[in-house]
């Protein structure tokens, strides 16, 4: 193991390490801790400039109720779910099929199709922006959550295909061969043989895509406007403009916005990391 396991070092180093760990963590997360603390401060603390000291009073309920009552943050959150959940389902479903096709069948265009998905996934968003906005306008779904979700489904299919294809490629091919010998049709092989084995990949991709899409800001500003359709990232930005210097409310809003992906991460941590670090180990 590298570096040397701490248990094998002198007791002085061990103590130093055990102190350094929490200290480093607090420093690392200091910005977030400050936000969490500020989200329970009173307006008086903010005007007095008490940003970093202990709050004079804890207004947890008052602040969080205030943002839900006085702003459309609830709507923004709902919109985020309306974009994120269909995207997760859509892109995972599409990429189960494309990944299967590219991993299992040998045909001449295989690598070309695969590379198209991979390359497209790295493209800068700006080169798609004008045509995608036009396309969405022409389809009559500009400024709808469906229009935004549809684009996300298409774009995320690139990354998901890369992921699924490599996952299926690592499966034992004999399973498929055996089924073919039995005369099972290709569609049934996909549905009954391969798909059940893809559960871990589906779980990993779902949490990853959920986080990516929940946190998307660029496309939200390009394809939607206003509280009726905009997701929380874009909503938070416009709220920030309205709440000038109301940092306790901005902070509470930020915490609410960050909560769903954070919960997702903690509940599905192993899948999340397995998805993210795909390819980091040979």
């Amino acid at each position: 193991m590298f570096p040397t396991p701490i248990a094998r070092t002198s007791s002085g180093t061990q103590i130093a390490y055990k102190i350094a760990l929490p200290v480093a963590l607090v420093l690392w997360l200091l910005p977030l801790i400050a936000v969490a603390l500020t989200s329970v401060r009173s307006a008086g603390d903010i005007t007095a400039g008490n940003y970093w000291g202990w709050p004079t009073s804890f207004n947890l309920l008052a602040n969080y109720t205030a943002i839900f009552e006085n702003t459309p943050i609830g709507k923004y959150i709902l919109n985020s779910f309306k974009v994120t959940i269909p995207t997760v389902i859509g892109s995972v479903a599409l990429s189960c099929m494309t990944g299967f096709a590219l991993a299992v069948y040998k045909f001449r265009a295989n690598l070309i199709v695969f590379f198209m998905f991979v390359a497209g996934n790295f493209v800068p968003f700006q080169i798609l922006m004008v045509p995608v906005r036009d396309l969405t306008l022409n389809m009559g779904i500009y400024n709808t959550t469906a229009g935004l979700a549809l684009f996300h489904i298409a774009f995320q299919t690139g990354f998901c295909t890369l992921f699924m294809r490599n996952f299926i490629k690592a499966m034992p091919f004999e399973l498929i061969e055996a089924a073919r010998v039995e005369g099972v049709s290709e569609i049934k092989i996909f549905w009954y043989v391969v798909l059940p084995l893809m559960k871990p990949a589906i779980a990993a991709l779902s949490v990853l895509i959920f986080t990516f899409i929940w946190n998307d800001y660029f496309w939200a500003t390009v394809l939607t406007q206003g509280a009726d359709t905009q997701p929380i990232t874009a909503g938070l930005y416009s709220l920030n403009g309205q709440w000038v210097a109301a940092w306790h409310l901005v902070s509470a809003g930020s915490i609410v916005a960050a909560l769903p992906p954070v919960l997702m991460f903690f509940l599905m941590q192993r899948h999340f990391i397995a998805g993210l670090t795909l390819g980091a180990v040979k």
């Binding site: 069948y105 998905f117 922006m129 774009f155 295909t161 569609i187």
Partner: peptide
Amino acid sequence: QRLAPWLFLAPGIFMFLMYVIIPIFQS
């Protein structure tokens, strides 16, 4: 065995062409 891959690929390729590949050329 020759047709199945294209059947599985069709929806994904369609979406990806429409929203990613073609827009690059349009831009």
